[in-house]
Design a binder for these strands. Structure first.
Lengths: 340, 340
DNA sequence: CTGAAAGCGCTTACAG
DNA sequence: CTGAAAGCGCTTACAG
């Protein structure tokens, strides 16, 4: 029977209905459902029975209004066009959903002021928690996060600052490890080719520099930094440019796999022998990298683990507990294939 | 000054604050802000001035509780691993955000019962509107959507059923057009290779069948249907299988670009001449397809337009207006490159 | 065209 | 350990 048009009643089963069915007060139902302890176990059972019988589900809006926050978590990432973040979000969502939290994705498009704007909107919706990419934010963004006292976990990078929670790995170490691999293969004129130039890319640049400087092999003319968005097409273009302007280069380390994939396709087109003439390496081990010809050497970055671990950490924080470790380093793995 | 610990006051600027500043009643503020007409223009101005002066922003939770629904839109898509849906979501979000709506992404993983579950959760949050992929839902899903009376726009496919709102294109016609292109190129033994086997893929199969049957060229043994998730690796594998088991095949129509990209890479690896020995075509024109060697012939599907048009249509519906057209067909384009 | 009252469905802070 | 009251910040339905 549809509710009368003139009434505001929603016809919804409410907490009050459960309370009268269980013959307890609404507050007790509320407490029992949220697992607050200090509720007699027989009452909890009566409440649960009534909930099952009536098919009661709490109203998130009412809950959000009455309590300090909603039952959703905001996740701020640069863009979904980078498959890295798609994997991250899938993992976050998979961990949070069973705990009853919705995931609200905010896209910053690698822009600090857009991030600030998105965060502002997200905060209006009073999220129960926040997952934020990296540490490079505008002062206003930092201030918003601090004021809001919404639990927050940073991902992709790690920090040892007190009070900061993070899950990631050392971008710098990972880049250094890959560079070391190229050196071990006998490469000496190793170019670094990057696009987008986000903070993590710049950390990879540092790792590459560290490793080469240490052996006196660092040559700033082999740094190819392009602020344009990363893409296969750009990788192809950079590959051609680098080889034509620096013919002696014997390896190129691309800061992301899509660039490297584009480079490998350009090599096929131009009939440039990889790795014989020039080795090509990427970063992130994205879809298709193992299918390239030759298969791409890269760094596998465990974004699935990062997402899951960050979500678990956030779950602790949202329950008012301090996680065992404020920082989780999930590591990385150099995946050697045929392109180096 | 932080709010007293003992008070429930949030310190937030409320509609009541705006009302007293503007010297009108709270209801008038509410009406003015929602653009409800029938509010004197001088009052509207006073309200707007007060809002600006106080920096007031409405509380979504309170709004959601008091009214029938929240200020967010649920978007149900199969998976973010298919770049198609990433583009769709970006476009939806770009259109909805300026109108004050948040986008809540629900992932169904190509599973009808998971879709049902996700929809159930979404509905609990009382979305203002819904964007749903396709028309193939479980009976329970259909019932939930019908009962909820949340405005809903279906995307990717179109329907002419009364009362149904949709934005998409004819998957079947698009596949037929691509098949025609292959026939025009002189191909006669054209295989159809598909993965995932979602409804749209099956419609493409029909389009391929239509076109070949019409000329007496349809051969069911050239249908390669694999329910596994679509990927470059699978495309490579299917390519090898098809050529070894059906050596006379002179073209392969892959139902999605990632499969076709994998096939092209396999061809490079196996030194099979494309398109000389066998033509390869894909579908969707995903990132990288123009970079392949040879560049991939495919069908460009305007998911950006679909997302934007669907969001605009939903905006109308959420304002209680009926859109000019209940169905928008955005069309498609066969993009001929070098692989056919 | 405008408003006073009631209510949306929960949880908080207090009291016992 | 449990509850009656008040309140979160809006909008609805009614009346004028």
């Amino acid at each position: 029977m549809p509710p009368s048009k003139r009434s505001r009643a929603t016809g919804r089963i409410t907490l009050a209905d459960v309370a009268s069915a269980a013959r307890v007060s609404p507050i007790t139902v509320s407490r029992a459902l949220r697992g607050e302890r200090g509720v007699a176990s027989d009452l909890v059972e009566r409440v649960q029975a009534a909930v099952r019988k009536l098919g009661y589900v709490p109203d998130p809006a009412a809950r959000a209004l009455a309590s300090a926050h909603g039952s959703h978590v905001g996740v701020l990432v640069p863009a979904l066009s980078n498959a890295l973040f798609v994997d991250l979000i899938e993992a976050v969502q998979r961990t949070l959903r069973p705990a009853g939290y919705q995931t609200l994705v905010g896209l910053t498009h690698y822009d600090k002021s857009e991030e600030e704007q998105v965060l502002r909107e997200q905060l209006l919706h009073r999220p129960a928690g926040l997952v934020v990419t990296g540490f490079d934010h505008s002062p206003a963004t930092r201030a918003l996060m601090a004021q809001s006292d919404v639990p927050c976990v940073h991902v992709m990078e790690t920090s040892s600052d007190p009070g900061v929670h993070s899950v990631g790995f050392s971008q710098r170490d990972a880049a250094a490890a890959l560079t070391r691999h190229l050196l071990d293969r006998g490469r000496r004129r190793i170019a670094f080719a990057a696009a987008q130039l986000d903070p993590r890319t710049m950390q990879r640049l540092e790792g590459w520099r560290d490793e080469l400087s240490r052996r006196g092999l660092h040559d700033p003319r082999l740094e190819w930094m392009n602020p344009a968005p990363s893409s296969m097409a750009l990788g192809a273009q950079m590959f051609e440019q680098i080889l034509s302007q620096r013919p002696a280069v014997d390896a190129i380390f691309f800061c992301n796999d899509d660039l490297a994939q584009g480079a490998l396709l350009a090599a096929t087109r131009l009939r440039i022998a990889v790795p014989r003439q020039v080795a090509v390496a990427g970063f992130n081990d994205l879809t298709g990298s193992d299918q390239m010809v030759p298969a791409l050497t890269t760094v596998r970055t465990p974004r699935g683990e990062i997402g899951a671990a960050a979500a678990r950490m956030l779950l602790e924080l949202m329950q008012g507990r301090e996680p065992q470790q404020p920082t989780v380093d999930v590591g990385f793995e150099v995946v050697v294939r045929d392109s180096t």
